[in-house]
């Protein structure tokens, strides 16, 4: 049994794609991350051309995020007001990112830049989350209640302070827009939804409660990945609808499983698990950078979608 992917121009086993789609979809529902940083390497490994993999995956993440954020919305775990501000920043950031991406291509060695971005951000985010969750867990074990320190820094002196009732916050509207901007920018450069950066940024920078973070992050990712899908299809012609169909059939089902599973874990366990996965991917990319592969490699440049 095999299915032909028209844009990737290759035949593939649909069940393998369905399986990985469901796996990544489950992570999406569980953690509120798109899972793009995991799916991209998996698709490369399956032999899908990188350009097609990255673009098509944006479509899958979009679908999984729609499904996941609706589920969170019904549970009241979505801060729409915060989400709208994040989206506003995110769309500006992703457009800036697309232009930077094109500029980096003209400079050459775009691959290296992407890999370094991955290592730096996955390492920093994963390490930070891991340490923080470990501390919180140890504090709990020692019998003390986890303290919610409200840091009073320059952030609280910013204008346009707005109430966010869902998140129980009273902070400047500039903050979520800035976070969205940064996430959108990185999302376009790294070809991911950006959830793995947004979730920690919302928890640690904005101080949002973990319960609301996942739904709001998924809500933002919908718009960022919809924008990415459209741009990739329009300008690069690298979105494969058949591959996307398989990925999102697996993905949406996985996301629902993830949302249900998330009720069974507590927040710290979830964060430690996500931190470990992020660090593992970081380590894999770093080792690829350090350990030499084959000396000579090649890529067909006008293969996918431009034959």
């Amino acid at each position: 049994m095999s299915v032909y992917l028209p844009i990737a121009e290759m035949a593939t086993n649909p069940f393998v794609i369905l399986f990985f789609g469901a796996l990544v979809g489950a992570m999406s529902g569980l953690f509120g991350v798109g899972g793009g940083f995991l799916m991209a390497p998996i698709l490369f490994f399956l032999g899908i051309p990188p350009s097609v993999a990255v673009s098509t995956e944006a479509t899958q993440i979009c679908a999984a995020s729609v499904s996941g954020s609706l589920a969170h919305f019904r549970r009241g775990n979505l801060d729409i007001k915060m989400g709208v501000l994040l989206v506003a920043g995110g769309l500006i950031g992703s457009t800036l990112g697309v232009f930077t991406f094109k500029w980096l291509i003209t400079l050459g060695s775009i691959d290296l830049v992407i890999q370094l971005f991955y290592v730096v951000f996955l390492g920093a985010v994963g390490g930070l989350m891991f340490l923080e969750s470990l501390q919180a867990m140890m504090r709990r074990r020692a019998g003390k209640t986890a303290m919610h320190k409200r840091r009073h820094g320059f952030m609280h002196g910013l204008p346009f302070r707005t109430k966010f009732p869902r998140s129980k916050l009273y902070i400047s509207a500039i903050l979520p827009v800035t976070v969205g901007l940064g996430v959108g920018f990185l999302s376009a450069i790294m070809g991911v939804g950006g959830g793995f950066i947004m979730v920690p940024a919302m928890i640690y920078l904005l101080g949002m409660p973990t319960l609301v973070v996942v739904g709001t992050s998924l809500f933002t990712i919908i718009f960022v990945t919809a924008n990415n899908t459209l741009q990739h299809a329009w300008f690069n012609g690298t979105v494969d609808l058949v591959l996307a169909g398989l990925l999102l059939l697996g993905g949406v089902i996985g996301a629902q499983i993830g949302v249900r599973l998330s009720g069974r874990f507590n927040a710290e366990q979830l964060r430690i698990l996500l931190a470990l996965i992020v660090l593992a991917v970081c380590f894999k990319i770093l080792s690829d950078l350090l350990v030499g592969g084959p000396a000579i490699q090649f890529s067909f440049t006008n293969g996918a979608g431009h034959g």
């Binding site: 729609v66 499904s67 919809a226 459209l230 741009q231 012609g237 979105v239």
Partner: peptide, 27 residues
């Protein structure tokens, strides 16, 4: 593959719509 080349913008819109519809239907 022809649609993706000849009507790229429309094709992109369809992809987004398919994604949103799939997510919504599953939910």
């Amino acid at each position: 593959s022809r649609g993706a080349k000849d009507y790229a913008f429309l094709y992109g819109l369809i992809c987004v719509l398919v994604a949103v519809a799939a997510g919504w239907i599953t939910e």
